[in-house]
Amino acid sequence: MVTSLDWAPNTNRIVSCSQDKNAYVWTFDSSTNKWGPTLVHLRVDRAAIQVRWSPNEQKFAVASGSSSVAICYFGEDNNWWVSKHLKKSIASSVLSISWHPNSVLIVCGGADMVTRVFSTFIKGIDERPAPSVWGERLPFGTLCGEYESEYNGWIHSASFSPDGNQIAFVAHDSTLSIVDPVNNSIYSIQSPTVPHYQLSWVSPDKIIVSGQQPCPTACKLTSSGWEFSKETAKKGTGRPTTPRDRDSPLSRSSAFNIFRQMDSRASAVFSGDGAEEEHENGSAIS
């Protein structure tokens, strides 16, 4: 099963990874009008979970179930994608990865309930990064920070802020945490609902989270700290209403549909056109 895809817009390449422990880089051949795959041997012994291109599109990272993150880059000498592993102190599956804007640092969070920041500096590929809040000298594999979720929930998603100086992560204990490495503080916000699965920074003072709710929620930095904004927490605001939504005969036709939806989406509450709303979630924050 293919678990993740990512597209590099500037070099027009797609990378895919799957449970068969492999990744493929797909390049577009304009003469035949087809995408062709190149196998990347990740050297992991469990499923690949998520793949992301670095912002400069020279490398990509693959989170895997073998308690490691594979950092892959193209080795010109061998004409082959080379994979190097980040393993230090990771104790379980890595579920989420996200790149720093400088394409050297990466944040990963996983089932061992810890979010970690690593350096993926590769000689000959990367330029030496400017010193930042995460450190000055950053050889490959440097662990720049480790942050636990407040109530030991495993980490669903972690991400750098747009300037790369902070990270945020959402965990299974229904918290959203913002880490400021300068004073080594973790600001944790408790959500009143079920855990969030994804997050995305839209600006330095605003984060959008989504999960099992039918609608994404915004979290804003106010004068009294980070807090969930009330407006988008309400259903139906911030997105166009579609006529297909609630009152179509299809959606309220029968109890059968309700239970079928509960079965297929594992949702306890019948929430109208679930597919559309879920898609709205994904597109709103990707």
Binding site: E150, Y151, G153, W154, H172, D173, S174, Q190, S191, P192
Partner: peptide, 12 residues
């Protein structure tokens, strides 16, 4: 405080 508290107890 919503069902978030229950999630936190379960994961803690």
């Amino acid at each position: 405080s919503g069902i978030g508290s229950i999630c936190r107890v379960l994961s803690d």
